[in-house]
């Protein structure tokens, strides 16, 4: 049985009299232990998909199954990692990482022991008592990853987690994530608009169509593991990158047309 199954999932928003279709008839199965990246043009409903798995929003039609059971509300089994960290500023690194276990009622001594293990796994030993405001962006994202892992979720949901980091930190974090996911053996659903990031991390890359989002292409990435940044020069890598790019390019252009068309119909509305 697949860990996560999207069954004809659609999501639309109503804005005045117009109905905006964000996701249309999305179907996908994710197996246990897989690392799946979703790439797509901005506004194609990638984040909407992730928010539906986490239970923050409900599909307008269709359903999402976790271990065969539909997700009905916010579910701690789907651990979310936000782009903007969403750490608790008033809690120390240790306090942040142990939060999920505290909510489960795990005794203090035990949960702190587990938290320390994960803090060490993400390479932040010695920073247990620092507050988030005292950490750099990369360190904050490490805390978020440790916080999600300590809660032992079935799946990690990552919404462009490294987009706010500078290019070098980002590369370090990608390699770290590979190691961490490997060590903890977690299923991961990762959203990005960077093809390189997807190719470095994923077992499978899902290319989404422009709005409304559908699966356009489901690509198995057969690059050998462990992967390194240097693999980006291999022939197979470039071949895959080319395939993904030509597929994405179409959608980006399409997306621009949609946006332009909409803008024409409603000339008063400003584009963000």
């Amino acid at each position: 049985m697949s860990l996560i199954v999207f069954e004809n999932v659609s999501k639309w928003y109503v804005d005045g009299k117009t109905r905006i279709q964000a996701v249309d008839n999305f179907n996908l199965s994710i197996e246990k232990g897989e690392f799946v990246c979703i790439v797509g043009a901005s506004g194609c409903g990638k984040s909407t998909l992730l928010n539906m798995v986490a239970g923050f929003i409900k599909p307008s039609s269709g359903r999402i199954l976790l271990n065969g059971e539909p997700i009905t509300g916010i579910d701690p089994r789907c651990g979310m990692i936000f782009q903007n960290y969403a750490l608790f500023p008033w809690k120390t690194v240790l306090g942040n990482v142990e939060f999920g276990l505290k909510m489960k009622g795990v005794p203090k001594k035990e949960r702190q022991k587990v938290a320390r293990e994960y803090i060490s796994m993400v390479g932040l030993s010695g920073f247990e008592n620092s507050y988030p405001s005292e950490l750099s962006g990369g360190m904050k994202q490490r805390v978020t990853i440790a916080r999600a892992l300590a809660n032992d979720p079935e799946i990690l949901l990552m919404d462009e987690p490294f987009a706010a980091l500078d290019a070098m930190t980002r590369q370090v974090m990608q390699e770290e994530l590979l190691r961490i996911v490997d060590e903890s053996n977690k299923t991961t659903l990762f959203i990005t608009h960077s093809i390189d990031e997807a190719l470095l991390l994923a077992d499978r890359v899902i290319i989404m169509s422009a709005r409304p989002g559908r699966v356009k292409q489901d690509l198995t990435i057969d690059l050998p593991r462990p992967r390194h940044v240097s693999d980006q020069l291999s022939e197979r890598y470039l071949e895959l990158k080319n395939t993904i790019w030509s597929s994405v390019e179409e959608e980006v252009l399409h997306n621009m047309l949609i946006t332009y068309g909409e803008n024409n119909r409603q000339p008063k509305r400003k584009l963000a």
Partner: peptide, 22 residues
Amino acid sequence: DPLVIKAAKNLGASRLAVLREV
């Protein structure tokens, strides 16, 4: 910050826990 509230709920916080802890 509503994002932090979201994060707490995602980590399994009940309504009361969100009030007290967040």
